[in-house]
């Protein structure tokens, strides 16, 4: 156990080191960020560090113009590049890693997210932000096509493939992984229904009110400015549009939380190392989960950005939470 902790500590120190290296742009604020991260590193040994965010974080989120990157904080302008870096590295093995890390559960989470929360309908225009490898986007398109077929049967008419899914990601490497999968899909008119856009979630290249629904799954915690992302989501949605977010959250069950923390902090980086050859990126992913606001707090953030009827649903006692809201 002790050995495990020291090794985990080593990994952390490594992450901090690489951060500082990555952030070596000789800006005063970055030096401050480096100071902050090293202080935190010394003050709390890894084992005793409480990974939970204690309530709404006002103090450690917006120090000057820095945002949290894992457990350390970096300059806002640097954050985007660092996150992009992480996902560029993991892109080729991203889907397989998700299966390994979640014991295939992420497939069920996504199925429920799309089938029950989003409940696609015929002719729907959907935007999947941070859609990367298309996991959620393909599911949405499949459901839309299914609804269109059912509609055609009822009307006794030709099936009309009017629904469209736009998959948007800041990271070109992830989109490339997704495009590779299109050929193997068993969805009618998949090519025609899908479009791929490389864009930042904080400034989307779409007109106002151009989509019926918006999803962001396992992506919003990596966005530098959550408020900007949400207000963009609200802008591109039609009136009555549905915003859905699938994201890791706070585990409510004490026992499950202990097990989950042990697993994610100690096992996942090693799986990442062994399979994808990259422990640091997965260390970041795990840490960013801990830094993300809990269910209630995130719900308040969504409401503050003008969404109505905001509610959330916990899956597996809060390992993952589905938030949803409407533009009314």
């Amino acid at each position: 156990m002790l050995a495990g902790r020291t090794r985990a500590g080593g990994v952390l120190a490594g992450v901090a080191g690489s951060l500082v290296r990555a952030a070596d742009a000789r800006l005063p604020s970055l030096w401050a960020a480096r100071l902050l991260s090293t202080e935190a590193e010394e003050a709390t040994p890894v084992g005793s560090r409480d990974p939970r965010r204690p309530g709404p974080k006002a103090d450690d989120e917006e120090v000057g113009d820095s945002v949290s990157f894992g457990f350390s904080s970096v300059d806002r302008s640097e954050h985007k590049g660092l996150v992009k870096d992480v996902f560029e590295k993991v892109a080729p093995k991203y889907d397989a890693m998700n299966d390994f890390m979640s014991f295939f559960l992420h497939r069920h989470w996504k199925d429920r997210f799309v089938g029950i929360t989003l409940h696609p309908f015929a002719g729907q225009k959907h935007l999947d932000v941070a859609g990367g490898t298309g996991d959620v986007g393909f599911r949405v398109l499949r459901e839309i096509r299914r609804a269109e077929e059912a509609l055609a049967v009822r009307r006794n008419a030709e099936v009309e493939s009017a629904g469209e899914v736009c998959i948007c990601d800041i990271n070109g490497a992830m989109l490339e992984e997704g495009k590779k999968k299109v050929a193997g899909l068993d969805i009618r008119d998949a090519e025609r229904g899908l479009s791929w856009v490389e864009s930042d979630a904080e400034s989307l290249p779409f007109d106002d009110e151009s989509f019926d629904t918006y999803t962001i799954s396992f992506g919003i915690r990596n966005v530098s400015d959550i408020d900007a992302c949400l207000s963009e989501a609200r802008r591109v949605l039609k009136r009555g549009g549905h915003f859905c977010c699938l994201e890791f959250s706070q585990v409510n069950n004490e026992v499950l939380r202990q097990v989950y923390d042990l697993y994610s902090m100690n096992v996942i980086p090693y799986i990442g190392q062994a399979y994808a050859g990259d422990a640091h990126s997965y260390q970041y992913l795990v840490e960013s989960i801990r830094k993300f606001p809990d269910q209630e707090h995130f719900k308040e953030i969504i409401e503050a950005n003008g969404f109505r009827g905001v509610r959330y649903e916990n899956l597996l006692d809060g390992v993952v939470a589905i938030h949803s809201g409407f533009k009314l």
């Binding site: 929360t117 409940h119 309908f121 629904t213 009555g240 549905h242």
Partner: peptide, 20 residues
């Protein structure tokens, strides 16, 4: 749900509003 979708469109919403 189709009835609710139709009602939503009638009121000037997107059909997605049925998910409320």
């Amino acid at each position: 749900m189709e009835a609710i979708h139709a009602a939503g469109r009638e009121l000037g919403f997107s059909s997605a509003v049925a998910n409320v």
